[in-house]
C-alpha cells in the first residue's frame, strides 16, 4: 500500500502538471469571478468564501478522471486486482494520492487567493480549516465516480455529472463554515457536519468504489 502511494506520488511529480494544473485552474477561476460580477469590494467580500470553495471544488473535479483511467489503460488495475492488495485499499490509496497532489495544494493556495477577493481577516483560518476538512471527501467521492466510469472512453463529462450532485452536502457545509467564519459568526455546527460527512465518506465509500471497480474489471 505504501509502495502504491509512493509510486502514485512519484508519477504525479514526474508527469508534471499534476500539481500545477489544478492550482492554475483555481487561480484563473478566482481571477475571472471579479470580471463576471464587477470589482466592487463589498460584493467580492460577501461572495469570497463561496467562490473560493467553488473554485477549489472545480479544480478538484478537473483531475478526477486521471485517478484510475491511466492505471486502467496500461493494465495495472487488472494486475493489482490479482495482487494481494485489497481493492478497497487500492481505491483508498488512490484517493489519498489524489488529495495530496490536488486537494492539499488547493488548501494551501486558498488563503493567498482569498486576498484577491478581499476575504475578511477572521475568515482565513476557517476557510483553510474547512477546505482541509472537506477536500478529502471530494477526493474520495471523486474516486467513486472515477471507478464508475473507468471503462468508458469519454467518461470525463459523465464523471462530472455523477460526482457533482454528490458534492452538494460537502460544498454546502464547507462554504457555510467559511462564510460564517468570515462574518464573525460561530461556525462550529457546519464544521462538525462537514467533518462528519468527510469521516463517513472516507469510512464507507471505498467499499462502494471497490465493488464498482470489480464490476468494471469483469
Amino acid at each position: 500500500m505504501i509502495a502504491l502511494l509512493r509510486r502514485d506520488l512519484a508519477l504525479a511529480v514526474r508527469a508534471g502538471g499534476g500539481f500545477g494544473l489544478g492550482l492554475a485552474f483555481f487561480l484563473i477561476v478566482v481571477v475571472l469571478v471579479p470580471f463576471g460580477v464587477g470589482p466592487e469590494t463589498p460584493l467580492l467580500t460577501a461572495i469570497a468564501p463561496g467562490v473560493l470553495w467553488l473554485g477549489a471544488l472545480l479544480a478538484c473535479l478537473l483531475s478526477l478522471d486521471r485517478i484510475l483511467a491511466l492505471d486502467w489503460e496500461d493494465g495495472s488495475l487488472d494486475l493489482m486486482a490479482t495482487s494481494p492488495l485489497p481493492l478497497e485499499g487500492v481505491v483508498t490509496i488512490k484517493a489519498l494520492a489524489h488529495w495530496v497532489t490536488t486537494g492539499l495544494p488547493l488548501v494551501l493556495a486558498a488563503p493567498v487567493l482569498g486576498v484577491l477577493l478581499n476575504l475578511p481577516g477572521p475568515g482565513y483560518p476557517w476557510l483553510t480549516l474547512s477546505l482541509a476538512l472537506g477536500t478529502p471527501a471530494l477526493s474520495v467521492l471523486g474516486t467513486f465516480g472515477a471507478a464508475l466510469t473507468v471503462g468508458l472512453k469519454r467518461g470525463g463529462l459523465l464523471l462530472s455529472l455523477l460526482v457533482l450532485p454528490l458534492y452538494v452536502p460537502t460544498l454546502i457545509f464547507g462554504a457555510e463554515v467559511a462564510r460564517r467564519g468570515a462574518a464573525g459568526l460561530d461556525p462550529m455546527t457546519p464544521l462538525l457536519m462537514l467533518a462528519g460527512i468527510t469521516c463517513g465518506t472516507i469510512a464507507l465509500l471505498p467499499f462502494a468504489s471497490a465493488a464498482v471497480l470489480r464490476m468494471n474489471l469483469r
Binding site: 455523477l162 452538494v168 457555510e176 465493488a211
Partner: peptide, 20 residues
C-alpha cells in the same frame, strides 16, 4: 450502486439544504 450511494447523498443534501 450509484442508486444506493445517491440515495444516501440525496438525503444528506436534503438536510444540508435545509440547514443552508
Amino acid at each position: 450502486i450509484l442508486c444506493l450511494v445517491g440515495s444516501v447523498f440525496a438525503v444528506l443534501s436534503r438536510y444540508a439544504v435545509l440547514f443552508w
